[in-house]
Nucleic acid binder design. Structure first.
Lengths: 124, 124
DNA sequence: CTACATGCAAACCCTTTGCAGGCTG
DNA sequence: CAGCCTGCAAAGGGTTTGCATGTAG
């Protein structure tokens, strides 16, 4: 893995947020001024294939990446301010297993997003 | 609501599948040869706002629409052949309620998609 | 020398938008 | 006439790709 690619992975792992390709690009650029967005995309695609990072669709118009927890986990998204809360929830894993039994599918991953209004936004 | 828009809604309701904008366009065209894709998109957007149809992201590169069950429900998607199975599952509703209590969010909808390999594709 | 990595720009694809003409009431 | 509905074409935005150059082993 090249230094640039390492940098992309590091940026994703070092951030608690779920960065977009554009954001990753912006944060890698100080250290690698010559890096292009295309390289970032190619790298993200590679890391995703390798299972190093998780690609998320938070319904914001572009993809987000999470390097902290490779296993799928649910998100709670505020439709007012865009805040994203990661959920630690194991019920869905059990649900996956139940579903495998009842449908015969071999489930490889799941995506569960809950949309709503966060406590702060409810006040306004 | 204009006849064309009624036709768009009807196509979605009459189909068990989750049609894409392009597919809706193709099925409305026999009755309304002059209809344009732009009108289909505008109508789908309107119907979504009205809460008549549900917009789904099945990770196929474009959006799908479901007019049968306006309330969110989970899907099981085969990553090999693209088959989509609707899941009747009430555990997620309970989960929503639990989550509201623990996070203070007011949850308006949820999206849950399980990806895997269907029984047929597992044979090959 | 072979293979892979990179930057640039163009291409892609689905979706949205601007606009002028039509239709309705 | 006011206001919405329509089709067309163009624009839009995130992502992908082709290609020539650069780099490493």
């Amino acid at each position: 893995m090249t230094p640039q690619r390492m940098a992309v992975l590091k940026v994703i792992i070092d951030n608690e947020e779920h960065l977009t390709a554009e954001q990753v690009y912006g944060r890698v650029k100080p250290d690698f001024p010559m890096i292009s967005l295309a390289t970032v995309y190619k790298t993200l695609s590679m890391l995703k294939e390798m299972g190093e990072i998780l690609e998320l669709d938070l319904h914001t118009g572009c993809k987000h990446y999470d390097g902290h927890r490779i296993f799928s986990h649910p998100h709670l998204i505020c439709t007012e301010c865009g805040a994203v809360v990661d959920i630690e929830e194991h019920d869905l894993s059990n649900l996956s297993q139940d579903m495998e039994k009842s449908t015969g599918f071999e489930i490889t991953k799941f995506q569960a997003n809950f949309f709503g209004i966060c406590p702060q936004c409810q006040k306004h």
